[in-house]
Design a protein around this nucleic acid. Structure first.
Length: 728
DNA sequence: CCGCCCACGC
DNA sequence: GACGTACGTGGGCGGA
């Protein structure tokens, strides 16, 4: 990950979570760097040839990675650790690498230690650890390492680039590692044609089937290569994703993983290019011998991490979700991110002005009613105006920092008596739309493609969902009239294409029905009745035909509350009804759907016994707080225990569908492209002449991706349109 | 620079 | 009486 340099622009827009991935620890350089630097080319070649010989010798001795027909790397890979016995000492894990079932995995405290930085001071680093990192620069040198790499079935691989944004990154170098402690660095010059010439030399290797490419967040490297016309055709093993399924809540940046699992502190990227921020330099300017150590070390660490994670995948019983879901999804996401989606910039520009005008009107109206001007965008100032100067509510609540709470729910309650609140809410909505979407999206249009390329984070959300950044295309407005308009700006690539959107219908509730087996809920889905109406009929004791809008609305709210583990208080707040009425509704619900209550009890008990909950695909979430004596802490864990298998199973299902669709599109040679995933929805840029062919493929793939227990049917709907709003 | 408040999605 | 709905990303403010 270290190669993903922060350029000033990206810095501002990257999420805080991703920012933590770039944390680095200072280190020193070993004198060996300088020894190699002094060497002339001939001497270098000698070293290189010697290494080649050793590697080949190793291969001839049969100690290398064993070829396999299974796409899962074999355990024998782990046996190659000490080819250079004196070179590569066995790794110590400082007791952090414990097997499944140890109480350690249940502890979240260890990770807090890492965040605060006082970690696990890894005692090993490049200065005290023997290594053999070699630069391969000439055509002959590159040929030689390629012939070595051609002979193995697993290669740890990393790219160095000029940007953290793969879609704008220039390749600076490639590193390869097949044995812990040694590897090669291939520098790539700034001239694109020269780099392409180098890549062309590697092309047969990259396209060779049967190789497993090991990488840490290899989607990034695959994307970079894709922009140079190179596609990895073999299998992949992403250590980031391995760790994600082994420990979904853990920190995953390479330095943290290396310290924790290898007891080794990698070379700091800040030593190379400075602290993140405006003054940060680029990898392009780092001296060859320096970048070489950093780069090969990354590939080296990645290889060693793979050797640690491989047995853990088995021990923790997360192989299925890793090999069948996360790992194969990488190529799908790479293609989607590379594709991007076109936006109508002229439309947004015009809409921005309209929003600005309307926001101004609301703002002026607020100042007039308040009798003074202030910064309406400041919740602090607003709270003081509303609750001190204007005295709108003597019982005004404060936030934990002592400010007045001025959130949507607070203002909505006051809006009946105080018109000013409506104006404030309007101002908030309009400025939100303008600042977060309408004005921000055009800034992220890629200069080369004229499209916006979101980046999907595959190892962030603890439940197994994807997240989307720069831009986040998973939270484009739809709820309000003026918000919805923004979806009109997402358009097909040209007049020969049209947008297609397919989404699962009530997928999380279907999963609740399926895994709880509640007969009434299962029955509702089997007969295909509207689930909220069916729920209302049961809860309010009427015939389905007699369910009113009001009843359905309330039932819908209850259904959502069930998924999130909501109580009477929350439901009452949500529906703005007395708590007694909310309690009555929930009691009735539990009576009518006894299987749901049982599911919740069983799930919590399972979690108490095993320390984790899991999805149908075996995706796990460890919740040590489930036995906490603290009511609040335990309650939080219990809600997560109930929600995670539901949200996680839905995430598993759509990921499987994406893999299936991606494969089918390739098989049928469709030119249409999958572009976006929004948790239960997939968006496609469809060639008009393919629309009728792809529709059944998409729907069928989504419906059959994961069979639900208890014969609960899975339904999906599909729409077509000139923009995202029309297609949805 | 970072925590907080707020608001958008599923 | 406290506590109170899962998972995310991101803009602007304001204090350090």
């Amino acid at each position: 990950m270290g190669e993903k340099i922060r350029a000033g622009k990206e810095l501002a827009i990257m999420s805080k979570k991703l920012a933590t991935i770039i944390i680095n620890v200072p280190t020193e350089f070993h004198e060996e760097n300088f020894r190699i630097k002094e060497m002339n080319r001939e001497a270098l070649k000698e070293v290189f040839l010697e290494l080649e010989f050793k590697a080949l010798g190793k291969r001839l001795l049969g100690e290398e990675i064993t070829p396999t027909t299974d796409d899962r790397p074999q355990a024998t890979e782990n046996t190659q650790m000490d080819l250079f016995g004196n070179v590569v000492a066995p790794q110590k894990n400082k007791g952090t690498n414990k097997p499944a079932g140890s109480s350690q995995v249940l502890s979240s405290g260890e990770d807090l230690g890492e965040v605060s930085g006082e970690v696990i001071a890894a005692e090993k680093n490049i200065t005290n650890t023997p290594h053999n990192y070699i630069v391969a620069q000439t055509t002959e040198q590159i040929s030689a390492i390629i012939s070595i790499l051609q002979s193995v079935v697993a290669i740890s691989f990393d790219t160095e680039t000029t940007s953290i944004d793969a879609n704008n990154a220039e390749l600076v170098g490639l590193s390869f590692c097949i044995t812990p402690g040694e590897g090669w660095y291939v520098p790539c010059p700034p001239e694109r044609e020269k780099t392409i010439a180098i890549l062309n030399q590697f092309k047969p290797l990259f396209e060779k089937p049967g190789i497993t490419w090991i990488g840490q967040n290899i989607k990034y490297d695959m994307l970079v290569l894709k922009w140079y016309g190179i596609e990895l055709k073999g299998d992949i093993f992403d250590t980031l994703l391995a760790h994600y399924v082994i420990e979904p809540e853990g920190k995953r940046n390479m330095d943290a993983l290396s310290a924790k699992y290898l007891g080794y502190q990698p070379v700091s990227i800040t030593e190379l290019i400075g602290k993140k921020g405006k003054t940060q330099g680029t990898m392009r300017d780092v001296e060859l011998e320096v970048i070489k150590d950093y780069a090969v070390e990354d590939a080296d660490v990645t290889l060693q991490l793979k050797n640690v994670f491989l047995p853990q995948l088995k021990e923790k019983e997360v192989e299925k979700v890793f090999y069948e879901v996360e790992n194969p999804l990488v190529k799908v996401l790479t293609d989607m991110e590379c594709e991007g989606i076109k936006i109508d910039e002229a439309f947004l520009k015009e809409y921005s002005q309209l929003l600005e005008t309307d926001a101004k009107k609301s703002e002026e109206s607020v100042y007039e009613q308040a009798g003074l001007r202030f910064n309406l965008a400041s919740p602090k100032q607003l709270g003081e105006v509303l609750f001190e100067k204007m005295q709108l509510d003597p019982k005004a609540k404060k936030t934990k920092t002592g400010q007045y709470a001025t959130g949507e729910d607070v203002l909505a309650k006051l809006a009946k008596e105080h018109k000013i609140c409506d104006d404030i809410l309007a101002f908030r909505e309009l400025t939100k739309l303008k600042n977060t979407y309408v004005d921000a999206l055009p800034l992220l249009v890629n200069a080369k493609t004229g499209r916006v390329h979101t980046s999907y984070a595959q190892a962030i959300a603890v439940t197994g969902r994807l997240s989307s950044v720069t831009p986040n295309l998973q939270n484009i407005p739809i709820r309000t009239e003026r918000g919805r308009e923004i979806r009109k700006a997402f358009i097909p690539r040209d007049e020969n294409h049209i947008l297609v959107s397919a989404d699962y219908s009530q997928i999380e509730l279907r999963i609740v029905a399926a895994i709880s087996g509640d007969v009434n809920m299962v029955e509702a889905f089997r007969t295909g009745t509207d689930i909220h109406t069916a729920t209302a009929a049961k809860v309010f004791g009427v015939e389905a035909a007699d369910v009113t809008k009001e009843m359905r609305y309330k039932a819908k709210s209850v259904n959502f509350g069930i998924i999130y583990g909501q109580g009477a208080f929350g439901l009452a707040e949500n529906l703005r009804i007395p708590r007694s009425e909310a309690k009555e509704i929930i009691d009735n619900y539990k009576k009518q759907f006894p299987g749901i209550q049982k599911y919740m009890d069983d799930t919590i008990n399972f979690c108490i016994e095993n320390g984790y909950v899991q999805t149908l695909m075996g995706r796990k979430r460890w919740l040590r707080d489930i036995t906490s004596a603290n009511f609040t802490v335990r309650g939080y864990a219990e809600r997560n225990a109930i929600n995670s298998p539901i949200q996680g199973a839905a995430a598993d299902m759509i990921k499987l569908a994406m893999i299936k669709i991606h494969k089918a599109f390739k098989q049928y040679n469709f030119k249409s492209k999958m572009l976006l995933q929004v948790h239960d929805e997939l968006v496609f840029d469809a060639r008009k002449d393919e629309v009728e062919q792809i529709k059944p493929v998409i729907l069928q793939s989504m419906k059959t991706a994961m069979v639900l227990p208890n014969e609960v049917p899975v339904e999906a709907e599909i729409g077509v349109g000139a923009n995202w709003l029309e297609a949805h």
